[in-house]
Design a protein around this nucleic acid. Structure first.
Length: 781
DNA sequence: CGCTCCCCCATTTTT
DNA sequence: TGGGGGAGCG
C-alpha cells in the first residue's frame, strides 16, 4: 500500500525536534529515553506509520512489543487512524472526521485489512505464543521433552498447584522449609534468567538449590506431560529454540526487519535475549551486524522501572548504548534520543516528580520539562485511619465534581500500593452511589465457573491437558468418585501416557473404573464429539454446546440460587467474550481464543470514557493519566512497602513507584496518609512516608501545620500584610476553616481597614475572596 | 462419598 | 479481615 508523502509532512509537523528524530529514524539501533507524558506512544505509532508509508516497509516485517495487551490494541488503533486520515484526504479530499460514520468504518476496515492486521504488535507473551503455534513441535528440551502446537497455557494457579503437589506429595518435602510459593517463585526467576534446572543448580550450588532444581525438573516434566507451558516458558522456549536451531532463527530474523520495544526498562534477561537474537540473528560480533533495511528501536524510562520482582532489569536499558548503540557520550551520540518535554502534567506536579526522583542513584539524568502552566498546589492530607482517609477522598471527589463542570467521575483515579487498600474506598463509593471501576484484585478469568468452562475448552483443544481433565471430569457431579479417578490415574502414570488416553478407551475404563465406568465413558464420548468438530465449529459454538452437553448449565439452573444465577450470567459473559474475540481478531478457532484468554489481564478491559472513578495499584496505573489523582496510603511500610525498606535497591524501586503515581496526574494531585490503619485485623500506628519529605515543601499544602511555617514569596508581591479585625488577627499562610468551604489557607490580604478582605485558597475549590467579618472563620490548628 | 464447618494462615506489585 | 484446606458428620 502506498500512501502519499504529503501525509507524512502533516504529521511530522506536529512533533518536537526530539520526537521527530525518533520518528524519522530508519535503520540501525536507536534508544528513545522517554520521560513520563513525553509522547512516547506517539513517537512509536508515528514511526511505524512512517516506516510503512515513507520507507515502504512491509507491515508484516514490523515487530512491536508492548507491555500490556491494552497498549498493543491502542497502538494498532492509533496507526489505523493515521492511515485512515491519510486515505480520507487522498480519496475523498476531506478530513477523516468529516466523513460519515459509514465511510469512516469502511476506511478503517480497509486500513485494517491492508496494514494493521499484518503488523506484529503485542506483548512478549502473545507474540511468542504466535511463534510457538508455528514452531514448538521442532523444539526439544535438554531432557528430550517435547510439546505440540495445541499446547495449553497454564495460569499462575495451575502452576502453583503443580509445584505444591510435587513438593508435598511427590517429594514429600517439608512445606515449611520448602514453601511451594517460594519454590515456584525461584523456578520462575530461573526461567526469566534463561536457566534450565541444571544451569540453575550450577549457578547456585547448595542443598536448597538442589531440591529446587529437582522440583523444577519434575515440574517441567509434568508441564510436558500435559502438553502445557507456563507464562515464562512462552518466552524461554522460543529463545532456546532459536539458540538450538539456526534455520528457525534465520526465518524469524528475516521476517522481522524492524523491531520496536516499548517499556524497555521492564524487559528481563530472557526477553532481552529474544530481542537480541531476532535483531542480530545470533551474531555476537558487533562488527558483523548488518543494519541494512533493519532496525532496533527501544523506548523506555529507567525512572519508571517497577517490575524487578518479575526479574525486569533496567540495566538492560542503561546498557543499550554499549550493546547496540555507538556508545558515545550523550552530546555526540546518534543512537539515543531523549524526550523530556512533558505534555501531560502541570508544572508543580512535574517539579515535585523531578525533585522526588533525584533521590535515586541509579538512573539516566533526565528531567521532565513543563509545557503547561504551573497549576494548583499539591495537597497533602493526614487522616486518622483508613476509613477517614477514604471518606476524605470521596468527599473531595464529590466536591470537585459539583464545582467543576469540566470534571466527571472518570476524571479521578485513586492509586494505592497494594490491592488490599481498595476496600474502604469501594465501600464509600458504593455508599454514595458513585460509579467506579476497579482494576485488579480477582479477575474475571479467576472465577470458578469461568475456570471450569475454560477447562472444558482446554481439554477439547488439548487432550493431554490432564489438569483440566481432572478439574471437570466430575464437575458437575457425574458420580465419578475419587477412587475411580485414582485408579484411572494410576494406570496412566504407570504407562506414562496422558490420562485422557485411558479415559477415552472404553475397554480400559470398563476394566478400571468399576461402577463409574458408564459415566466415564459417557463423559469421554461427549468430549470426543467436540474434539472431532474442533475445526468445523467456532470457539463460541463449542463453548455454547459443551456447557449444555456437559450438564453444567442445567446443574446451575437447577440450583436456582442467586449464586448459581450469577455463575450462569458469567458463563454467558464468557460466551460474549469469545464472540467479541472472534469478531475483533477474525480468528474463529478455539485455540486462538484460549491463548487470548490466558494472557488477558484485568487492565485490558479498562474502558475509557466510562465516567467512572478508577481504583488501581500503582503498578496498574503505569501508562495511564487522569486529570485528578489521589495517591493514597503514603505511609512507611506501605509506600515504601515494609519488604523493601531494608534493601536500598528495592527502596529506589518504591520511589520510582511513587514517581509513577505522581506523574499520572494532569491537573491536580492529592496525597493522603493515615495515622493508623487496620492491618491483618488489628490496628497499627503508621508514620508518614519518607517520600513526603522528599517533595518540595513549598509546592505542598497540608492539613497538618508544618513545623516551620514557610510562606511562598512568589505569592505575596508586597511585604506581608496582617489583617486585624475584631479580636482575630489574620496573616498570609494562616490555615483556616470556613463553614461552607472547609479548610483553606490565606494567600493574600486585600485592601485595608474596614474594607479589607481575605483571599483564601481552598483545596480543590480554588481561591475565593472572603470577608471575615461576614463569613465566620476559624483558625485551623 | 460429599458436604459443611471451623480453624488457620496470609497480603506487594503481574504478563 | 477472607479464603483455602482439613477434619468430622450426614
Amino acid at each position: 500500500m502506498v500512501i502519499p508523502m504529503t501525509v507524512n509532512n502533516d504529521f511530522l509537523a506536529q512533533l518536537n525536534t526530539s520526537q521527530r528524530r525518533a520518528v524519522e529514524h530508519f535503520c540501525g539501533p536507536l534508544l528513545v529515553v522517554a520521560g513520563a507524558g513525553s509522547g512516547k506512544t506517539r513517537a512509536l505509532t508515528y514511526r511505524i506509520a512512517h516506516l510503512i508509508s515513507y520507507h515502504q516497509v512491509e507491515p508484516e516485517s514490523i515487530l512491536a512489543v508492548t507491555f500490556t495487551n491494552k497498549a498493543a490494541r491502542e497502538m494498532k488503533e492509533r496507526i489505523e487512524k493515521l492511515f485512515a486520515q491519510e486515505m480520507a484526504f487522498k480519496k475523498h479530499g476531506i478530513r477523516f472526521d468529516l466523513l460519515n460514520e459509514y465511510e469512516q468504518k469502511q476506511l478503517l476496515s480497509k486500513v485494517y485489512k491492508s496494514t494493521t492486521k499484518k503488523l506484529w504488535i503485542g506483548t512478549f507473551h502473545s507474540l511468542c505464543t504466535r511463534i510457538l503455534r508455528y514452531d514448538i513441535n521442532k523444539y526439544q528440551d535438554e531432557r528430550g521433552r517435547q510439546w505440540q502446537r495445541n499446547f495449553s497455557i497454564f495460569d499462575e494457579s495451575d502452576a502453583q498447584s503443580l509445584v505444591k503437589n510435587i513438593v508435598t506429595k511427590q517429594l514429600n518435602l517439608d512445606d515449611k522449609k520448602f514453601d511451594p510459593r517460594s519454590v515456584r517463585y525461584q523456578i520462575s526467576n530461573a526461567k526469566n534468567l534463561g536457566l534450565s534446572p541444571d544451569q540453575y543448580l550450577q549457578k547456585n550450588p547448595s542443598y536448597k538449590s538442589r531440591v529446587i532444581a529437582e522440583v523444577y525438573n519434575e515440574y517441567q516434566s509434568q508441564l510436558a506431560a500435559n502438553n502445557a507451558l507456563d507464562f515464562d516458558d512462552l518466552i524461554l522456549i522460543p529463545v532456546r529454540l532459536f539458540q538450538q536451531n539456526e534455520s528457525i532463527l534465520g526465518y524469524w530474523h528475516s521476517q522481522f526487519k524492524h523491531i520496536l520495544v516499548d517499556e524497555y526498562q521492564d524487559t528481563n534477561q530472557i526477553q532481552y535475549e529474544l530481542i537480541r537474537l531476532l535483531a542480530t540473528n545470533g551474531e555476537t560480533k558487533k562488527s558483523e551486524w548488518n543494519w541494512q533495511n533493519r532496525s532496533i528501536f527501544v523506548v523506555g524510562d529507567a525512572d519508571q522501572s517497577i517490575y524487578s520482582f518479575r526479574m525486569a532489569d533496567f540495566t538492560i536499558l542503561l546498557n543499550f548504548q554499549s550493546d547496540f548503540g555507538d556508545g558515545l557520550p550523550d552530546d555526540d551520540t546518534r543512537t539515543m534520543v531523549k524526550l523530556e518535554e512533558n505534555y501531560r502534567s502541570r508544572e508543580n506536579i512535574l517539579e515535585a516528580a523531578n525533585h522526588l526522583i533525584e533521590n535515586n542513584s541509579q538512573r539516566i539524568d533526565k528531567i521532565l520539562k513543563p509545557t503547561r502552566g504551573s497549576g494548583d498546589f499539591i495537597y497533602c492530607y493526614k487522616a486518622d485511619d483508613e476509613q477517614i482517609e477514604a471518606q476524605l477522598v470521596i468527599e473531595h471527589i464529590q466536591k470537585l465534581v459539583r464545582e467543576n463542570p469540566e470534571l466527571n467521575w472518570g476524571s479521578f483515579a485513586i492509586l494505592y500500593r497494594i490491592n488490599a487498600q481498595s476496600r474502604p474506598f469501594e465501600d464509600r463509593l458504593i455508599m454514595n452511589s458513585i460509579p467506579y471501576n476497579i482494576v485488579g484484585g480477582f479477575k474475571f478469568y479467576d472465577r470458578q465457573e469461568i475456570k471450569d468452562a475454560i477447562a472444558y475448552l482446554r481439554l477439547i483443544a488439548n487432550p493431554s491437558d490432564t489438569v483440566s481433565l481432572l478439574r471437570i471430569i466430575n464437575t458437575p457431579r457425574r458420580s465419578i468418585g475419587k477412587t475411580s479417578i485414582e485408579s484411572l490415574l494410576k494406570a496412566a502414570q504407570e504407562l506414562e501416557i496422558p490420562l485422557w488416553e485411558i479415559i477415552s478407551d472404553e475397554t480400559s475404563v470398563n476394566t478400571l473404573a468399576g461402577r463409574a465406568a458408564k459415566s466415564v465413558n459417557k463423559f469421554a464420548q461427549m468430549i470426543k464429539s467436540f474434539q472431532e468438530q474442533l475445526d468445523s465449529l467456532s470457539g463460541a459454538e463449542i463453548l455454547n454446546q459443551v456447557m449444555e452437553a456437559s450438564g453444567y448449565v442445567d446443574d446451575l439452573k437447577q440450583k436456582g440460587t442467586e449464586e448459581a444465577d450469577n455463575r450462569l450470567a458469567n458463563i454467558f459473559e464468557l460466551y460474549n467474550a469469545v464472540l467479541q474475540f472472534q469478531e475483533d481478531s477474525e480468528d474463529q478457532s478455539l485455540q486462538g481464543f484460549l491463548s487470548n484468554a490466558s494472557l488477558a489481564s484485568d487492565l485490558d478491559d479498562l474502558k475509557e470514557g466510562q465516567e467512572k472513578v478508577s481504583l488501581m495499584t500503582l503498578h496498574s496505573a503505569k501508562g495511564l493519566e487522569f486529570p485528578v489523582v489521589f495517591l493514597v496510603g503514603l505511609e512507611e511500610g506501605l509506600l515504601p512497602h515494609a519488604r523493601s525498606v531494608s534493601d536500598p535497591l528495592s527502596l529506589e524501586e518504591e520511589r520510582r513507584l511513587c514517581y509513577v503515581g505522581v506523574t499520572r496526574a494532569q491537573e491536580q494531585l492529592f496525597l493522603t496518609y493515615a495515622r493508623e490503619r487496620f492491618v491483618w485485623g488489628s490496628k497499627e500506628a503508621k508514620m508518614p512516608s519518607r517520600f513526603l519529605q522528599e517533595l518540595p515543601s513549598d509546592l505542598i499544602k497540608s492539613n497538618v501545620p508544618p513545623k516551620v511555617v514557610k510562606s511562598r514569596p512568589s505569592l505575596t508581591t508586597s511585604s506581608p500584610k496582617i489583617l486585624k479585625q475584631s479580636n482575630e488577627t489574620w496573616s498570609v499562610g494562616d490555615q483556616v476553616i470556613h463553614q461552607v468551604f472547609g479548610e483553606g489557607e490565606i494567600t493574600r490580604i486585600l485592601g485595608s481597614g474596614k474594607k479589607s478582605s481575605l483571599a483564601i485558597k481552598f483545596p480543590g475549590l480554588g481561591q475565593k475572596i472572603i470577608d471575615p467579618t461576614i463569613a465566620p472563620l476559624k483558625r485551623n490548628e
